[in-house]
Design a protein around this nucleic acid. Structure first.
Lengths: 155, 155
DNA sequence: ATAATATTAGTCAACATTAGTCAAAAGAAC
DNA sequence: GTTCTTTTGACTAATGTTGACTAATATTAT
């Protein structure tokens, strides 16, 4: 414990605030200054220690009055299931296999029919049609994973 | 909260009036004066926060007795509403404006919070990140229109 | 009526102020 | 000493602020 690196210390600082208040809002440069590190180290801390798998959702805004907001969310009981689907999606997925992923979610009761239809609309050939099949499959994978990550918690 | 930018404050001021009275009419220079900004900042606030995607219609007149009028759009029925959103999306749309479209659907009651979050996940920067901004905006538009078309006959 | 002037709002580009990305360098763990 | 993690900083991107210039409309003078 006496040999903590600075990232661990910043992590602990933020989590201490989160233990009491559900959400922290910081100005990146202020925290960087406070701990005497470069601003981008705050991004590193967030990227490695405040992921959705850890139960945190991060939003930010640039420009005047910009901020980084970290929110503690309640993770659902479906983590292994979501993890397995994320793994199945990988970094490329065909329409056919994408449909199977959505169907799995529906059959598991994770999403209802309306939600399934929205997902399908987002990944069907109307939506994804760049002319480059490989690119379409890549984007389809990213869309699915982005949605799957949102299904990990209540919002 | 402690360090809001002035544009957010002006936005909140206008929306507070709109919450009670359906329509605001301002004199640009008066508001600029009241908040101690240059007049063109009022245009910036309107352009970034009171778009048709957000559900607002803005009319103005120059010259003596000039004004800017902001009206919260009355949603006729779902179909016209979706048509207007499809038109607003066009063939390119930024994340900012895409978010406004989803928010409008939510506020209109066309979709619920869960559905809104799925839509947002499908068009956010995690999902669309090809490295080519123009392409991202094109795909974002296609995804939104694909979903909007589904909502048309589902609801 | 027409022209000149005054009074509004609109546009656009420069500048300012934030956060994000990425890869190289440094350090720690094994 | 090889690999993984952390630290750093140069560059990028998003958003907000400002002011000079333009455009539209109304009012006043002729």
């Amino acid at each position: 414990m006496e040999n903590q690196n600075i990232s661990d210390i910043i992590e602990a600082y933020l989590k201490q605030i989160l233990a009491e208040s559900q959400e922290v809002e910081i100005r990146r440069s202020e925290i960087a200054n406070q701990f005497n590190v470069v601003p981008s180290q705050i991004n590193y801390v967030i990227k490695t220690r405040f992921t959705i798998q850890d139960g945190y959702v991060v939003r930010s805004k640039r420009g005047g009055g910009g901020y980084i907001r970290i929110e503690k969310v309640k993770l659902l009981d479906n983590l292994d299931f979501i993890d397995s689907l994320v793994a199945a999606v990988g970094d490329h997925i065909t329409r056919h296999d994408g449909l199977a992923v959505v169907r799995s979610l529906f059959e598991a009761g994770t999403i209802n029919r309306r939600e399934a239809n929205i997902m399908l609309a987002a990944i069907d050939k109307t939506a994804l049609n760049t002319g480059d099949r490989d690119l379409d499959e890549q984007i389809r994978a990213q869309i699915l994973i982005s949605i799957l990550d949102h299904l990990r918690y209540e919002s």
